[in-house]
Nucleic acid binder design. Structure first.
Length: 300
DNA sequence: GGCCAGGCTAGCA
DNA sequence: TGCTAGCATGGC
């Protein structure tokens, strides 16, 4: 049978230590999430590409991620963009064996890493989305952060409806760059966050802030560059480095979620101090991002 | 009803 | 260089 007459399926091989179900647990943590839907271990996601949109379904066979396009026929270019996106999203190109070897003898990580083995840092391949999510989440509870994100997407994102279900893609930097502060304030972003987000949208839209250029720099260079952006402090810089730029040594050490997770894992009454955390993390050198992500997992 | 949220800036010593 | 008030609201 001509393969083109059947529903085409793209396959991305997954590492032996990959666990799709663990990754889905992260993706399914908020019922306000509009950027993907999960049903019976299948993800449906809309991507807004340069020239077209792509609506794909993602599942796992045991040895590969399977991508299908049951709703439309995207171009070859779009298919490749989806493969690239998924590979990045699930961090499939990182060899986690050194991390697992380290964690196996680490008193803080051993338990959680063993319990959730196969989990990978679920990233944000879109640099703009990563910045917006970092800034949105500053100093507010995660439930409210998801509310703000949902409103931003519903108001300024791209949607595609099939079988009466509406799928959403994150707004482009171009779109947000053209907004006024008041338009985000109406969604209940604070005035400052609205300013920060619009300013970063401008920086990305006009080519001052480019993901590929950041990836080519050292961690220290990137941190310095990002922290110089208004609204981006050490926490946000490391969050973006961890979730988008894929620096495995990124470490949002001031993160309150990390503190709560450590308090829980260490069976403490109080949250550990920054100095204590830095001492604990000496053993995580090179893998601080993965250590943080696995610790966040205990809060789910 | 009060404390806590996946912090950051600006102003001050 | 280090410290902290103020931001701005919702969640629980």
């Amino acid at each position: 049978m001509d393969s083109r007459t059947a529903t085409e399926r793209l396959e991305i091989p997954t590492p032996a230590d990959f666990n799709f179900t663990e990754c889905l647990a992260i993706l399914g943590r908020s019922d306000q999430e509009l950027l993907h839907t999960i049903k019976e271990e299948r993800i449906t996601k809309l991507l807004a590409l340069e020239e077209e949109i792509a609506l794909f379904e993602l599942s796992h066979s045991g040895s590969a991620l399977l991508i299908e396009f049951p709703h439309h026929s995207p171009s070859e270019q779009a298919k490749q963009a989806v493969v690239q996106y998924v590979t990045d999203w699930f961090d499939l190109e990182t060899n986690l064996q050194p991390f697992y070897a380290m964690a196996a003898s680490d008193p803080v990580l051993r338990e959680v890493v063993e319990r959730h083995a196969g989990l990978r840092i679920m990233g944000m391949p879109d640099l703009f989305e990563a910045f917006v999510w970092a800034i949105t989440g500053q100093q507010i509870n995660l439930t409210f952060a998801y509310t703000l994100k949902r409103r931003l997407i519903e108001n300024f994102g791209t949607s595609y409806t099939v079988s009466e279900v509406e799928y959403w893609a994150f707004p482009s930097a171009d779109t947000i760059a053209s907004l006024q502060v008041e338009q985000l304030r109406e969604l209940q972003f604070s005035g400052r966050k609205a300013e920060y987000i619009i300013h970063i949208a401008e920086q990305i839209a006009d080519g001052h802030l480019v993901k590929d250029e950041l990836i080519g720099k050292t961690e220290q260079q990137v941190e310095k560059q990002l922290v110089a952006i208004r609204g981006v402090g050490p926490w946000s810089a490391h969050y973006v480095m961890m979730k988008c730029l894929r620096f495995n040594s990124a470490f949002p050490v001031s993160d309150v979620g990390l503190h709560n997770a450590l308090k829980h894992q260490l069976r403490r009454e109080q949250k550990p101090t920054i100095a204590e955390i830095e001492t604990l993390a000496e053993n995580w050198a090179g893998w601080q991002a993965y250590a943080t992500f696995y610790l966040w997992r205990v809060l789910l």
